[in-house]
Design a protein around this nucleic acid. Structure first.
Lengths: 167, 167
DNA sequence: CGAATGTCAGGTCGACTGACATAG
DNA sequence: CCTATGTCAGTCAACCTGACATTC
């Protein structure tokens, strides 16, 4: 009997005896679909980012909210939600957790007593600084295969797509 | 009293009386984060694609599986799962639905009776053709703001990132 | 009064984990 | 005996819907 035949592919050398469990190898059709590629990249990005922020005890949307507060200052929950396209309901849960962790505080807006003004605490500022470092590390890990120019180009193109689709 | 002051921004003209509910306006920090941009694009893509395939009565992963079967021929569930990086458990549920809809069929692999060989039915082939058209429409909607060259470049960059991160 | 805000309950979808029976 | 495969139950995060009390 002839031994298992070795066949060369573009990515690796594999055994062809039974072409089973050949590993991750998505259909070419999908590999050319922007929507599929975006989802796959987002999947990788999510894993990296989630792991990164988990080391500070929060999840991804918490980082998003902290960043918005840091950049835009105190805001009502409604304003925060529309700025970030996060649902009122989810945002409320996120703020509960951030408040319990002492990273933000809610104070009643006396000019409109329906509203809570949400703002960073000093602890929140410190936590965000640590988060920022970890987030930057995750970006690097995600974009390893791209040159600096390619990274800028990717960001430019993605930003255009995001800006074109309101909410 | 002076009337509400009009102030010009880079995207629109808005009233500054109360700078509340100014609409979707994510922090600049996030707008430069590749991971955040990828997630936002994936969010848009998911909405468009989910709506598109829903008109044929399926969800996104169903399309993925049908495509893999069409391109790679019949395969065991395990092989399908690893090729697409879909969990065995989830894939099983997807196949149950596809089989109930008559788009795929499972036959016992007699050379290894632990395995099911999954293959497209004629109905599945037809359904996939209709899905393909809708999917292409969704890509167009997603990439409206980009030129043909930019679309190719975006696909190239995303593909590189995906290929670099195994599973 | 109607509209906006925050809050709560619940529901779906996708990603993932662990257990288990059957077959290799 | 140990592993691989398919199946089932259940968790979790993100996203979304609807209802409700308070305040404007």
């Amino acid at each position: 009997l002839a031994g298992p035949r070795i066949v060369a592919t573009d990515k690796e050398v594999l055994v062809d005896a039974e072409k089973d469990h050949a590993g991750y190898d998505p259909p070419h059709r999908l590999q050319q679909l922007p929507s599929w590629l975006a989802s796959e990249v987002a999947r990788r990005a999510h894993r990296l980012v989630a792991d990164a922020v988990a080391e500070e005890g929060v999840r991804r949307p918490h980082f998003t909210v902290l960043t918005a507060l840091s950049e835009g200052g105190a805001a009502s929950q409604m304003a925060l939600g529309t700025r970030l396209a996060i649902d009122r309901s989810d945002l409320n849960a996120i703020l509960n957790e951030l408040e319990a962790a002492g990273l933000v505080e809610r104070v009643r807006d006396e000019t409109d007593r329906r509203r809570n003004l949400v703002r960073l605490t000093p602890g929140g500022v410190v936590a965000l600084r640590r988060l920022d470092a970890r987030i930057d590390g995750a970006q690097d890990a995600l974009l390893t295969p791209l040159s600096a120019t390619e990274r800028r180009e990717l960001v430019r193109l993605l930003k255009r797509v995001v800006e074109h689709h309101p909410v």
